[in-house]
Design a protein around this nucleic acid. Structure first.
Lengths: 350, 350
DNA sequence: ATCCTCCTTGTAATCGATTCCACAAGGAGG
DNA sequence: CCTCCTTGTGGAATCGATTACAAGGAGGAT
């Protein structure tokens, strides 16, 4: 593989001149420039990014550590992150933590060893030591989706509170009173937050959230199945189950089906995180949709701002309720009369 | 960030000794070793992978260029690739080509610029110039899933021929005679291959595959929708539509539903590539499942073999048919009687 | 006591870029 | 005609590691 020296020799100039041509430095004669360009072309020369990074102390690379690539929400996030990063001239290296703190730590470590310019993290647990260390050491960093309280790092996330209120209003309107939730891990902010928002929304309608109706999940399908089975075994099972992410909703659907029960006739189901597949399940699933693409793009912009010396602030975007059929038939749309809905709610075309 | 010099100073030895300790070189005195280790600990030193790569001319990194991360098949592939690579001491950088040749070229270029040790590619089109160049230049490379004929690079893929025969047998057994296919791009091997296998299998039953029953798709949901609409507009629409990948199957499901028709009563549907969601659609979709995880792992092993000077051969793994309900109710399982099925077929528990 | 090994260690070259500094050539201005 | 500036160029230092080579010291054999 040709190096800058080969190009310099071929063009009959010094390596300094080659470097200047390649980096658009102004003081190079037109003659030298054309000779260098011709040599580059002839040799098929491409600069060695490793050497360049060593010298310039920047890699133009972002690290993204996410909890679970197989979760469509995070896949979409990763995709939008890569797109925006590419537009800004950065590459992205993705680390999949699989909801395992040790793997998260592994990825943070190797990313840091590679001297990435900045780190985008959706922390799995309370935060791995390496990550906290990096944050303290001043590595440009932004939390996305989940975050760690008390760590001074901007957070780009979506606030589901209003959408959860809309959901509860929707369920209440359909006549449901016994509502249960499959929670995410208490170690994650999103795990706690969604339960809190749900409890709060129920409170506004004078509904309780008994402990028996809070199932502990781990954001994976298996836990959704187990928790739902527990709900169904209750002397008085809930009328609707709200899963705190899409994979647990999938598990819940499994569990209900395995009992030979039907959704929504026997039990209703709603999920946090909307994904394309929810349109095609039986029945289509009512869900709370995050603006995933916007989240990814905003996170990259905040991170690059930090890297390039600008401020890079936290961003919170609203989520919205998408009503489908998994909690019962929505009443036929009342034509031209004021909507009783507390905030605009998208009704998806089935 | 502490460098090897800082460690050397702290430990009172030369950088050479530090390097020897860190790389497990035998001739280091126990005394020096403990002092170096203490200094490393005290400074929180981590070797700079960029500098190391420059010197050793290896990055211990694999590049993976796939056609579409949002496609669950490729997501799973990427995940298994990363897992196996990690087990072998390599990192993976993923490039998402989004079925766009220009993007594929972009990613191949940046990966090569980073001097990755080897490249895993699922080519989008006939092959970008950069990629062919790299293959010719001897960059260790392995094709996975798709490949480019005439390029001397090992291919790790799955052979769907037998499974497609099983599928046609299944459809024929259900009484279906008018079978159509939504094909993938003709520029991809998988695009062509699946049509060929389908046509061949139909031929074995004396069934034709008229041009009107071959719809040109691009492996994206939108094309599945359009093609299916075309099929439904035919004077004599097909009885079953076979989509060459899961996203186009999703689009087909959309199109059928938009017409107010039902699967499988009005039209049957089958797909290449099985994904978890197919269990939960209405109805569950009959699909051909590739051993995706095995494919990813085998591809990494072949690539690493090449990188480390071993041979690294092509691998072909069989796909298998998973019968669900989207092509019509399978006949109630005939109890203890010889199965008429030409090869073992998995019947999924719904 | 002398010489030869073996073990440990440090010095310095190297990987492929970028960039500071010095210098030469040529034009402008006095 | 001499100075001063500008412009273009090359030499060499540098980034942070690895590693060939040389050298010093300890211990064993003669």
């Amino acid at each position: 593989m040709a190096s800058i020296k080969d190009v310099a020799a071929e063009a009959g100039v010094s390596v300094a001149t080659v470097s200047r041509v390649l980096n658009g430095h102004p003081s190079v004669s037109p003659d030298a420039r054309t000779r260098v360009l011709a040599a580059v072309e002839a040799l098929g020369y491409r600069p060695n990014a490793v050497a360049r990074s060593l010298r310039t102390a920047q890699t133009r690379t972002l690290g993204l550590v996410i909890s679970d690539v197989m979760n469509p929400y995070f896949t979409e996030l990763a995709r939008s992150v890569e797109e925006e990063a590419r537009a800004l001239g950065y590459s992205v290296i993705i680390g999949n933590a699989d909801e395992r703190p040790d793997l998260q730590d592994h990825h943070v470590t190797t990313l840091l060893d590679r001297r990435i310019d900045g780190l985008l993290v959706s922390p799995t647990d309370g935060g791995s030591p390496r990550m906290l260390e990096a944050a303290r050491a001043g590595t440009p960093m932004v939390f996305v989706d989940r975050w760690i309280p008390g760590v001074d790092v901007p957070v780009v996330r979506s606030d589901g509170r209003a959408a959860v209120r809309d959901l509860v209003a929707h369920l209440h309107g359909l006549g449901h009173r016994r509502l249960a939730i499959i929670a995410g891990p208490a170690a994650t902010t999103t795990g706690r937050e969604r339960v809190d928002a749900f409890r709060e929304a129920l409170g506004a309608y004078g509904l309780p959230l008994p402990d028996a109706y809070i199932g502990q999940g781990d954001f994976q399908a298996g836990s959704g199945r187990r928790v739902t089975e527990g709900f169904l075994d209750l002397p008085e099972p809930p009328e609707v189950v709200f899963a705190a992410d899409n994979l647990m909703a999938l598990g819940a659907l499994d569990a209900v089906r395995a009992r030979g029960l039907r959704v929504p006739e026997d039990i209703g189901l709603a999920a946090f995180d909307d994904i394309p597949w929810f349109v095609h399940t039986a029945p289509p699933v009512t869900a709370i949709a995050q603006p995933t693409g916007d989240l990814g793009r905003a996170a990259v912009r905040a991170l690059v701002d930090r890297i390039e010396g600008r401020t890079g602030e936290s961003v919170t975007l609203p989520a919205r309720l998408v009503v489908r059929r998994s909690c019962g038939e929505p009443a036929p749309a009342p034509s031209p009369s004021p909507s009783p809905s507390p905030s605009p709610v998208q009704r998806s075309t089935p």
